[in-house]
């Protein structure tokens, strides 16, 4: 057994109180994008009508709310894994912390998987974060393609949305799914 290290919100909050409001607003946007990591097999790729779009991506599902432009500002490799109510149950401190860790972890090269845990003696969820050595954006997207060389260079698109706006990319994914 090795030791874990714990930091209390107290103290941190005093220093960061000004950032919490902004982080909370950002979190509200993040809630609109939920990426649920799944195994690749059997995943169907399809696009739903604009305004209520769901793209089931090789690494999971993207749910787009009406403000697509805003939601795509989140880091591409922030993988959120949780229920639809995930965000609503968090305290503002947790939201702010999650937001901070999400951005910092990405900067130092981690992807993040999140799980919500409910312990029986408390109402607030505990968030289990698994920081994983980051896949590059290209690697992440490329999981869905048989021939990764067919992918456009990362520099040609800034966001996942840019990538999937291009119908030809969706076709490429669909054909893989059909085994062509």
């Amino acid at each position: 057994m090795t030791r874990a290290i714990s930091f209390s919100f107290i103290g941190w909050l005093i220093a960061k109180i000004g950032e919490i409001g902004e982080a909370t607003r950002r979190w509200e946007k993040i809630q609109k994008v939920r990426v649920e990591a799944k195994a690749l097999e059997g995943i169907e790729f399809r696009a739903l009508p604009k305004g209520n779009e769901t793209l089931q991506l090789p690494f999971g599902n993207l749910f787009f709310g009406p403000e697509i432009e805003d939601t795509m500002k989140i880091p591409a490799n922030l993988l959120l894994k949780g229920s639809e109510e995930f965000g609503k149950e968090l305290s503002s401190e947790q939201m702010a912390f999650l937001d901070l860790i999400g951005r910092e972890a990405e900067m130092v090269g981690f992807d993040i998987e999140l799980k919500k845990l409910i312990f029986h003696d408390q109402r607030e969820p505990v968030i289990h974060m698994l920081l994983k050595p980051a896949k590059t954006f290209h690697e992440l997207i490329g999981q869905g393609f048989e021939d990764q060389k067919a992918l456009p260079p990362v520099s040609e698109f800034k966001t996942l949305f840019d990538l999937f706006q291009d119908e030809s990319n969706l076709v490429a994914i669909k054909s893989r799914d059909r085994g062509n």
């Binding site: 090795t2 874990a4 290290i5 714990s6 930091f7 209390s8 919100f9 107290i10 305290s91 401190e93 947790q94 912390f97 999650l98 860790i101 130092v108 090269g109 981690f110 408390q122 607030e124 505990v126 968030i127 289990h128 974060m129 698994l130 920081l131 994983k132 050595p133 980051a134």
Partner: peptide, 20 residues
């Protein structure tokens, strides 16, 4: 570049890093 996976827990009271 990170080489391993790290567990972090965000509790209602603070944050815990496993094996920091």
């Amino acid at each position: 570049m990170p080489q391993r996976e790290i567990k972090v827990y965000l509790t209602p009271h603070g944050v815990t890093f496993v094996d920091p």
